[in-house]
Simulated scan of single mutants.
Amino acid sequence: MVRARPPSEAERIRARVASRLRVLDELLNTEMEEYFSSPGSAGKAYSVRPLLRRYVEAATQLLDRLEEQQAEGGLDVVLMDIPVTLVDESDGTEAVYVVVGPAEGDPAKGYISCLSPLGLALLMKRVNERVVIDAPGGQFSYRVAAVGTEPIDI
């Protein structure tokens, strides 16, 4: 009798990210722009479609190197469903967020929609990279302090 081996951490992350990429690809092939575009604090509309298209392409390439990256010390790139620790550059406070799908956002619980200004800005950022958010409430600056390794089941 052959026993199935439990999935590795890289395999679990790969499965979750691949699932998300399929969902995002479907969203990108719809008329999502008319429903989800919104102005930033300067009143300029930002386009969601090119940002998410770049995320899908880059995350797809990252999946090919995921096991190597896990062996080298873990993830250092923000992906959907993976916790990310941010440091607010204005006061040094830390907060943990998870970028999730549009319908799953709940900022009070730390779940940030991938279509929000913060969610869009975080995708594919690396540890120690600076993130500047131009949101309706003003401009905010964070540093990516850490990327978790365990996918969160929503």
Results as ranks from 00 to 15, higher is better:
residue 145 A to Y: 15
residue 45 A to N: 08
residue 107 P to F: 09
residue 149 T to R: 11
residue 9 E to P: 03
residue 16 R to A: 06
residue 133 I to G: 13
residue 134 D to E: 14
residue 126 R to V: 01
residue 12 R to V: 12
residue 54 R to S: 14
residue 28 L to E: 04
residue 21 L to A: 09
residue 29 N to Y: 07
residue 104 E to V: 10
residue 107 P to E: 02
residue 51 L to Q: 11
residue 4 A to N: 08
residue 88 D to Q: 09
residue 58 A to F: 05
residue 120 L to S: 08
residue 23 V to E: 05
residue 71 A to S: 12
residue 100 V to E: 02
residue 96 V to L: 01
residue 31 E to A: 12
residue 96 V to T: 08
residue 117 P to T: 12
residue 103 A to G: 11
residue 102 P to L: 15
residue 132 V to F: 04
residue 41 S to I: 13
residue 89 E to G: 12
residue 9 E to Y: 09
residue 3 R to L: 11
residue 6 P to F: 04
residue 110 G to T: 07
residue 75 L to C: 00
residue 11 E to P: 12
residue 3 R to S: 05
residue 101 G to W: 13
residue 79 L to R: 02
residue 22 R to V: 10
residue 84 V to Y: 14
residue 1 M to Y: 05
residue 146 A to P: 14
residue 43 G to Y: 15
residue 50 P to W: 02
residue 89 E to M: 11
residue 124 M to A: 03
residue 37 S to P: 00
residue 3 R to N: 10
residue 81 D to F: 12
residue 11 E to V: 09
residue 37 S to K: 14
residue 153 D to Y: 06
residue 74 G to Y: 01
residue 11 E to A: 14
residue 47 S to P: 05
residue 34 E to Q: 13
residue 9 E to V: 12
residue 69 Q to G: 00
residue 145 A to M: 10
residue 25 D to V: 12
residue 75 L to P: 00
residue 22 R to P: 06
residue 74 G to K: 01
residue 143 R to L: 10
residue 68 E to P: 01
residue 112 I to K: 01
residue 69 Q to T: 01
residue 153 D to M: 09
residue 17 V to Q: 04
residue 33 E to K: 12
residue 127 V to L: 05
residue 19 S to P: 02
residue 92 G to L: 04
residue 59 A to L: 01
residue 23 V to W: 09
residue 135 A to L: 06
residue 79 L to F: 04
